[in-house]
Every structure is written in C-alpha cells, then in structure tokens.
C-alpha cells in the first residue's frame, strides 16, 4: 500500500536530519512521483532551510 501524505511528510522531515534507509527512499520516491502536494511540501522544507541559512549568514 502506498504511504500516506502524513507519513511522507514525516519522512521528508526525517530525511533532512538523517540518511533514509533504502526502503524508505524507495517508498517516498514512489509517493512523490504521484503526489504534487508532497512535492510542494518538500520544496517548502528546502526553502525554509535555505532561507534560514541565508538570513543567518548574511
């Protein structure tokens, strides 16, 4: 069964702090392939991180 958005968002967050396992990666990629909301979510998380870094280091 495909993972839910709720699970995917948690894995996206975890993936920013630790390397995901092979199976986590595969299941997440599969979900992202089919889910635009979660792709946007992942992008937002990256924007959040880079926004903080840039503001902090300026």
């Amino acid at each position: 069964m495909m993972m839910s958005c709720r699970q995917a968002s948690r894995l996206i967050s975890d993936g920013m702090d630790r390397p995901l396992s092979r199976s986590e990666q595969v299941r997440l990629s599969f979900h992202l392939l089919l889910c635009r909301n979660c792709r946007h979510f992942r992008q937002q998380m990256q924007q959040l991180r880079s926004g903080i870094r840039r503001a902090r280091d300026e």
Binding site: C5, R6, Q7, N37, F41, Q43, Q47, R54
Partner: peptide, 27 residues
C-alpha cells in the same frame, strides 16, 4: 490531514524566487 492521512488543504508551491527571500525580513 484527513482520515486517510492525505493533506486537508492543497500544498501550494511557494514559488518565490530564492533571491526574493529578502534575508533580513525573512529572519
């Protein structure tokens, strides 16, 4: 999330160019 764990509301692309995040205000 709804009962199936799907987003209740669509997640929008923020679509702001990286440069648009004026560092100081963002902070």
């Amino acid at each position: 999330f709804d009962g199936q764990g799907a987003w209740q509301q669509a997640v929008r692309a923020w679509g702001v160019p990286e440069e648009g995040l004026l560092a100081k205000q963002f902070w």
